[in-house]
């Protein structure tokens, strides 16, 4: 489907009326037009009402080559807002919400095939830092408008589609060797030594970081992630890429069990120690070293 090319821009007062379609969950007061007096803080309402409808917003063309710069910041501001990305045929591919619309679109251009990003429509609330509800409401009204017109969500917003928003990004587990078939030219011990010294925080765990195979490893990964620690993980059960690591690491670290967490090349401990440091609030200081 295509969207009419609206002549009004997102900022014109003419496009002021925003329609909130009835939300099935709360049908009572959410009629077609949303009276300014109800429920929402006036501050928030102002900016919502300044946003245009999806069909009325002006498309901003995006250069096909990611190396070409985006249109100017007046068209694509580095500000909070909602945006829709259209393919060359004018079909909506994805509806996004962002604290920095320009940066998000820049991110999509790098990640998404070029034939899906031909133009964008944006709606930017007037306020510098709009309330989150302002943005989510604007996003919802665009989504509802689109679904009402087409009967479906944009492909990029369908659950399980990871073209636009990937699955929760976790760094891959590190591997000590390219594979079992490759003859090592340096001892495994030396590879471990290099790895723990080149990475600030390393967790040797059973299983991958996204699917630890042991409760203690899982707890350590959970604690590190909860503290926002940027850490490398190594799966000691990966016999293909880390063959022999299990036994060699025990000797290297003089520590008989797993998981093992290294910070700055030094063993900090296993699950017990990491848990106890987390409880005492000592982890933040440790990872800042």
């Amino acid at each position: 489907m295509t969207f009419p090319m609206a002549t009004s821009t997102a900022s014109t007062a003419a496009a002021a009326s925003i329609r909130l379609l009835p939300v099935p969950a709360t049908p009572s007061s959410r009629t077609l037009r949303f009276p300014p007096i109800l429920r929402r803080a006036p501050r928030a309402l102002l900016s919502v009402s300044a946003l245009s409808k999806l069909s009325e917003a002006s498309p901003v063309p995006i250069p096909q080559e990611p190396t070409q710069t985006l249109p100017g910041e007046d068209a694509l501001p580095p500000r909070p807002g909602v945006y829709g990305v259209f393919d060359p045929a004018g079909d909506l591919q994805f509806l996004g919400i962002s604290r920095n619309v320009r940066a998000s679109i820049e991110g999509h251009r790098r990640k998404v095939p070029a034939d899906l990003c031909a133009s964008v429509k944006v709606a930017i609330p007037d306020e510098e830092t709009p309330d989150k509800s302002v943005l989510t409401n604007a996003w919802k009204s665009w989504m509802e408008e689109y679904i009402a017109a087409t009967g479906k969500a944009p492909p990029g917003n369908v659950a399980g589609n990871h073209t636009w928003i990937g699955p929760p990004q976790r760094p891959a587990d590190l591997r000590l060797t390219p594979g079992r078939h490759v003859q090592l030219t340096v001892p495994l011990e030396q590879l471990i030594d290099r790895l723990v010294k080149e990475n600030k925080v390393v967790a040797f765990i059973k299983g991958s970081r996204s699917a630890p195979q042991c409760g203690f490893s899982q707890r350590v990964v959970g604690i590190l992630e909860a503290h926002g620690v940027d850490f490398a993980s190594v799966d000691i059960l990966d016999e293909e890429h880390n063959h022999g690591l299990r036994e060699t690491l025990k000797t290297y670290s003089n520590w008989p069990t797993f998981p093992q967490v290294f910070v700055g090349g030094e063993l900090v401990g296993g699950c017990d120690i990491i848990s106890s440091m987390a409880e005492k609030g000592e982890l933040a200081a440790l990872f800042q070293k």
Partner: peptide, 25 residues
Amino acid sequence: LVKRHRMVYDLLTDELNSGLHAISI
């Protein structure tokens, strides 16, 4: 803490080598 745990592990080396899998200390 690391040294304390090592002291315990060191005393239990034989056990760790004969089927003791994990200890929480």
